[in-house]
Design a protein around this nucleic acid. Sequence first.
DNA 1: AACATTTATCGTAAAATTACGATTAAGAGA
DNA 2: TCTCTTAATCGTAATTTTACGATAAATGTT
Lengths: 109, 109
Amino acid sequence: MGLSKIEKFTAEQNEMAKLAKALGHPARIAIIQFLVKTKSCVCGDIVDELPLSQSTVSQHLKELKTAGLIKGTIDGPSVCYCINDVTWQKAKAMLGDLFESYVSTNSCC
Amino acid sequence: MGLSKIEKFTAEQNEMAKLAKALGHPARIAIIQFLVKTKSCVCGDIVDELPLSQSTVSQHLKELKTAGLIKGTIDGPSVCYCINDVTWQKAKAMLGDLFESYVSTNSCC
DNA sequence: AACATTTATCGTAAAATTACGATTAAGAGA
DNA sequence: TCTCTTAATCGTAATTTTACGATAAATGTT
């Protein structure tokens, strides 16, 4: 069906999946890395940095924005993008907890 | 086109995206959480735990296995699944580094 | 006002994802 | 051997994702 049955899972599981999914594309990883590295964060700079068309980059930015990982503010004719601190910390905490919840054991596999 | 241009990005970006993408579905988050919680990790138990059909769960397990996050060993007629320690630590480190690379600043947005 | 720049959206197409039932394959037990 | 259990794979369908060019919207400039 192509549509995940999100109503069957917990809000936490859906939230974590949403955040992880937003990071589940190399272009979006590249965007995040670029935003972390440079504080400038003008949309055009991101487009120049990525090997993708302007419209495709715009689409990736939209997905990151929808997930809440970044935010954009209009700055004259251009748009200034940057990491959304609140959601970023939440993602860091949620995924960090998941990773730390596993402690290495030689139980079966 | 539906096919991401992975050849345009760095190996690191592709690796991080692959790992994040594997976690980008609530069912797969639920599987991971279950594997962390229980050490038993028999495939049938996972199927019983999730609100999805056996074939769908099998598909999700395959994706997690392809990403390297879990591994399965045949145990008689059933299969024992568990976290793949090596890749898990790698994912933890890579995504952890990404999250920590951002330091809160009130530069523009 | 006309024009240029910047970015979002629209339209489109190919491919991947999600999901399920049905079937197959492999091993355990009678 | 035949049967049962378990799990992977196949076939199929709907939806989403990825990508691009073209167009539109918004702002700044001349």
